[in-house]
Amino acid sequence: MTTREACCSCGQLRVICQGEPVTVALCHCRECQRRTGSAYGIAAFFARADVLVSGTYLDYDRPADSGFRVLHHFCPSCGSTVFWEPSRKPETVAVAVGAFAAPDFPAPRKAVFEQHRHPWAAVVLDR
């Protein structure tokens, strides 16, 4: 079984994920743009039972564009958002793909909120 580790910039907050992600999605919503400081965010959704968190974190709870709430968890030392819990999918935990720092990580299979996509951000999905 594949084991992957994601961590914050300073390494204090770590998330161990077992197995393959349920899905990997690229999100163009404005909140993901603000959260990442980039044109989009990419999340790997894992079954809650396959995720183990170590280290301390602070929370930020916000409404999503879908109307559901999202509880983000970030490192209190470096500020990196490493994982979050979407209330719309309570059986999963989302982990920031960039926190794995693994170029061989599975590619996104879908994109959401494309109406907010930056016109210069061309995306090729692995479908």
Rank of each mutant, 00 (worst) to 15 (best):
V22E: 03
L13M: 13
S80R: 01
C29T: 08
F46M: 12
P119F: 11
R34E: 13
S66N: 11
P86W: 05
A111I: 04
V15F: 00
R14K: 15
V95H: 00
R48V: 07
E114C: 13
C17R: 09
W120T: 11
E85W: 05
Y57V: 04
D59M: 07
V123Q: 02
C17G: 06
S66E: 12
R14L: 09
H118W: 08
A111R: 12
P119S: 12
P63F: 15
L71M: 03
H28R: 05
S66V: 08
P106I: 03
G11M: 10
D61H: 00
A39R: 12
D59I: 00
A44Q: 08
G11I: 10
C8L: 03
Y60Q: 14
A99H: 03
R62Y: 06
R69K: 06
Q115M: 08
A96H: 03
P63H: 15
R14M: 04
F46D: 09
A43M: 08
E5W: 06
R109G: 15
W120V: 09
E91C: 01
R30M: 11
G79V: 07
Q12M: 03
Y57W: 12
D104I: 04
C75I: 00
P63Y: 15
V70S: 06
T3W: 00
R62Q: 13
Y60R: 14
V97K: 07
K89Q: 14
R34F: 10
F45A: 13
R14N: 10
F46Q: 09
M1T: 08
R69L: 07
H72D: 13
E91A: 12
I16S: 04
V112L: 06
W84T: 06
D59V: 05
V82T: 09
G11L: 11
A44R: 06
E20W: 08
V15P: 02
P21M: 02
P86A: 14
L52I: 06
A101Q: 11
A64N: 02
T81E: 06
P90K: 04
E31T: 00
P76D: 14
V97E: 05
E91G: 02
A39D: 12
I16K: 10
H116W: 15
A6N: 01
L26M: 11
D104W: 10
P21T: 07
E31H: 09
P106S: 04
P63S: 14
R34L: 11
L71I: 07
G19A: 03
A111C: 01
H73E: 08
C27P: 12
L125G: 02
A96V: 08
S54L: 05
D61M: 02
G41H: 14
A96Q: 14
A111N: 05
S80L: 04
H28P: 01
V123H: 02
A111T: 05
A111S: 11
R62I: 09
S38Y: 03
E5P: 03
R35G: 01
F113N: 12
C7L: 05
G41A: 13
P21C: 07
A111H: 02
W120K: 13
